[in-house]
Design a protein around this nucleic acid. Sequence first.
DNA 1: GCCGTTTTCGGCCCGACTGTTTTCAGTCG
Length: 572
Amino acid sequence: MPIHNREIATKLNRLANLLEIEGANSFRVRAYRKAASTVRGYPRSMSDMLDDGENLSKLPNIGDDLAEKIQTMVMTGELPLLQEVEDRTPPALSELMKIEGLGPKRVRKLYEELDIQSLNDLEEAIKAGKVQKISGFGNKSAEKIKLRLEKYSGNEQRTRLIDAEEIAAPLLDYLKDAKGIGNIIIAGSYRRRKETVGDLDILITAKDSSPVMNHFIRYDDVEEVVSKGETRSTVYLRSGMQVDVRVVPEESYGAAKIYFTGSKAHNIALRKLGTKKGYKINEYGVFEDNERIAGETEESVYECIDRKYIEPELRENRGELDAAADGSLPRLITLSDIRGNLHTHTKASDGHHSLKEMAKAAEKLGYEYLAITEHSRSLSIASGLDRDQLSRHLDEIDELNAQLENIVLLKSSEVDILEDGRLDYPDDILKKLDFTVCAIHQKFDLSRKKQTERILRAMDNPYFHVLAHPSGRLINERDPYDTNLEKILEAAKERGCFIELNAQPQRLDLTDEGCKMAKDMGVRISIASDAHSTSDLKHMRCGIDQARRGWLEVKDVINCLPRNQLLELFKR
DNA sequence: GCCGTTTTCGGCCCGACTGTTTTCAGTCG
């Protein structure tokens, strides 16, 4: 069973935590964390790369030493240095660091002075009044830790972007009523449109910050005020969401937007470029010899380091700073570039609205075409259509098309890919369709090799066109099934197939990195809402967010094409 | 431990807030 990138990353992070508690060189600790982050976000699996004979030390933040450690993990599943460290430092201390307010120094102190090795030990010690007696801790610290312990569940998750939007919207409205407020924007990963967000970073400009901060902490939904200062305040909302509000003067708005939008990796790279030119870049502006030379707008900051403006979605230090230097930044796709939707359901299978209702709703969005993709016969749980039902369904589409003026319904099906890689309908049925959207809905637990081969075999069928939700993951609910994405993309390129970016906010599958990988390999994408109701059609915008993070442009997305050109693509 | 258009050695982001101090360490983002 090959080890996953996320397991490698988890081990490296745990090692970093324990070494930090032991007081190891902080830059070495940081190096392990940076490497963990590289591995976690990398679209190809370390295991596959080693199989292909590639040198891992080419990856950013991974040198000879870590390349070797990763190779050992891939081959044996173990990291010897981690085991060594765990022999002398209790492994659970790593978890104690997850409690807010506890960093390496304090965890070490708790261990050395009170022999606290676990969350349980810590709880007992606080109850017994021992913690507040250690120097450096006091009653307030003990109280805070106690509160955090009560709320800590161990499986804290980031919030899906669409859920974060629901939390953010009323708060933003409320904050706008604060006295003397200038600009207001939600920065952070929310502005970068990342699929999940950890907290909300709200940036505000105002001459006087006090009224803004006082207004903020009086928000109805605030459960706890963590800190409150002149430029920064932090609260927890009842939903558990952490919200940071930062107030800066008007002239620093651009620099602060960059700073608080991140990502961290983008900012560090950007500041390094500044340093090289003799500037200091921080949240207040760009400084040359303590004189502010830019910062009012984001453009002015990028200009100082000879870069064009970079869209927030691209700010992940994945090559955007180089692209902004040589003029090769992508012109990112927008919602209005979309001409149709290639994956939708109606009442005929597991959708909630009729053909006509879906067609009218899509027409209202200005689409030229809408593909109806009911489930195929094996998926009885979603009322999949048998061959006669599908046949009648196609007739209905023909009849409705004769009445529709501004939109055309495309005849399709979300065809199951069976365990052996066959498609769920015979060819004589498939050929009646304009194109197919093929997907895996069962047998998620096949080995990586078998799952990949299953998909490749399916692609051999000349009626295979689009691979829908290619990993099957549901954010925060279900892990992706195990496949070799690179091999799938290679096969898609060879055979003239396409990959779906499923725009359902809990799917968003492909990932952003996956989109970029597909683009770089020359495989085009269908961004489709997989709508099961008329209102689901608007989830297209979630797919656009993800696509922009994956550097996609109009030319990379097949449903930006007019209908006749699109249908040409499906002639394999 | 990583990295390099000043460097193969010597850097590695840095400002804000809190609590416990009595001038600052620890933590966080």
